[in-house]
Design a protein around this nucleic acid. Sequence first.
DNA 1: TTGCTCCTCACGTCACGTGAGGTGGC
DNA 2: TTGCTCCTCACGTCACGTGAGGTGGC
Lengths: 133, 133
Amino acid sequence: MISVAAELAGMHPQTLRIYEQRGLIEPQRSPKGTRLYSQDVVERLRRIQEMTAEQGLNLAGVETVLQLEQRLEEMRSELAAMQRRAAEMEQRMAEEVERVRRSLGAELVPYGAYDAKGIAAPVKIPVERADAG
Amino acid sequence: MISVAAELAGMHPQTLRIYEQRGLIEPQRSPKGTRLYSQDVVERLRRIQEMTAEQGLNLAGVETVLQLEQRLEEMRSELAAMQRRAAEMEQRMAEEVERVRRSLGAELVPYGAYDAKGIAAPVKIPVERADAG
DNA sequence: TTGCTCCTCACGTCACGTGAGGTGGC
DNA sequence: TTGCTCCTCACGTCACGTGAGGTGGC
C-alpha cells in the first residue's frame, strides 16, 4: 500500500515513512504491520507535496501551516454559522414586530408557528379583545 | 541603524539585508541609503526570529505563516464586528417590539426579555376572552 | 583613523529526500 | 524466485546564516 500511496502523492515511499515518523501523517496498519493509506491521508500528502515542492516549505513550516489552516477553517465555519444565526434572528424579530403591529388593529390574529429549532411555541391569540365589544 | 535593529532582534546585520532582499521586511531608507528600522519592523523581525530559530521554519514557511496569520487576524476582527452587530440588532429589535407593545395599551403585557440566542419569548396574553364574560 | 554603512562572494551547517543494504511474509 | 513490505544508515543537495573583503561618507 505504501507504493500506491507514494505513487498517488508523487513521492518516494521512504519519504512517506519519514513523514509518518515526524507525525505529519498517521496511516492505519494492517495486522501484519503493513501501512494502509486512506484517501484522506493521500489528500494530505498531496497538500504536503504542494507545500514542500512548489512553495519550498520545510516540514516545520508544513506542520505550522496545516495547523493554521485548520484554525482558519474552524473560524470560517464559525463565521458562517454566525451569519446564518444573525439572518435568522433578524427575520424572526421582524416577524415579531410585524405581528405585534398587526395586533394594534381591530383584531388580534394568530400567527404562524416558529420552526423546529427549539423555538418557543406559538401563542394562540384571542380573536376579540375584551374591551372590543 | 541596521546594527541597532539587528541587536534588538537578535540577528546578524547581514541577515536583515537578506530578509529585506527576500521581501520579508521593508525598512525605510535615509536620503543617503542607510536603512531605517521602525518599531513595527523590529517586531516583525522578532516574530521571524521566533519562527526560524525556535520553530525551525525556513523563509518560505515564514512568508506563508505570516500571510495566514494576517488572514486569521482579519477574520477574527470580522467575527468580532459580526458579534457586535448581532447584539446591537437584537437590542434594537427588542426595543422596537417593546415600544410597539406598549402602544397597545395596558392589556398586552410582554414578559421576559429575549434570551441570548435570539429566540422569541412567548407572549403573555390578556386572560379574558370576549365570550368568557 | 575609527566605526559605521553599503554591497557581493564564499564557506559551513543543517534539514530533507533518496538510495542502498539487509529482513521477512505472501 | 520475484516483488512487495519492514527497518536503519549514509550520501547529495539545497537553503540559510555568517564571515570576509572591499567601498564610501560622517
